[in-house]
Amino acid sequence: MSNWLPRSAAGRRWLGLAPSYFVIGIFMLVPMVIMGVFSFLEPNPYGGVKPIGSLDAYVKLFFEYDLEDNLVFNPGYINIIFRSFQLSLGATLLCLIFGFPVAYFITLQPANRRNFYIYLVTIPFWTNLLIRTFAWIIILGRGGVIETPLLAMGIIEDSLRMMYTDGAIAIGLTYSYLPLMVLPIYASLEKLDFRLLEAASDLYANRFEVMTKVVIPLCKPGIIAGCLLVFIPCLGAFIAPNLLGGGKKLMLGSLVQFQFASARNWPFGAALSMLLLSAVVITLIFYARAAKKRAVLEGSA
């Protein structure tokens, strides 16, 4: 083996990394660049693009042409984008409220039992998201698991109409990404030195203050990581808005898919994807900055 391998350490390194660079570079990085380029071209009504430069895709985000071919402000797409952020933030918050106590509860368990709880948290995550979201239709839908007994008992008289609402989407998103909130919070809580909690309570901190002054500040990296891991996929979610929002309550993800599947406006779809991508990049930059600042503050040398 050593005969044909490059002799130098650097040579071997790059040889080992070459396949990763090749695959992810060619099939992920280059496509994203092409996607960027496409967003500045004109759409071909039969799918694809015409090689003519145009800013139309980005203009379309804010304006539309009226009957006399004048640009007028169109809040439609902005609203969808705004709703996407709103729903994603809401779902992230729900995940945090729901997930944090559970992550904390798991850390309090004896070491051998903790692993099993984590296993239980991860199992749904590895099963098909489409299937799990579909199950919510059966639960929330007309004549579903929630409504039927309520109707039978006469507590409600008509369908609750829970499906195809923002609430349904928020539940679906929360449900989809809940494990991604619990896991990083658990990871940082697990490293928490419980003697610090005793020290705080010894120094007159009540239970609430122990939580807010010691536990939460110390597992902030886990909380932030969890929020990012939930927020980012929520923003681009397709399944939950599509199945539970019924395709009428659009979010960014489903709007993008729509451009390629039905509307055949590739440049606009590419532009929306670029927008989504930049939102992610900005979020990650903020995260990296915060992490760096934190490292400096705590003087971890």
């Binding site: 099939f27 992920m28 280059v30 496509p31 994203m32 092409i34 996607m35 496409f38 980012i232 996929p233 923003l235 681009g236 979610a237 397709f238 960014l252 993800g253 993008v256 898919q257 390629f260 590739w266 779809g269 590419a270 994807s273 989504l276 991508l277 992610v280 990650l284």
Partner: peptide, 14 residues
């Protein structure tokens, strides 16, 4: 890191 839908669009276009 990249949202799945973005990957999907990019690869499709590519």
């Amino acid at each position: 890191m990249v949202p799945e839908i973005v990957t999907a669009v990019a690869v499709l276009i590519f």
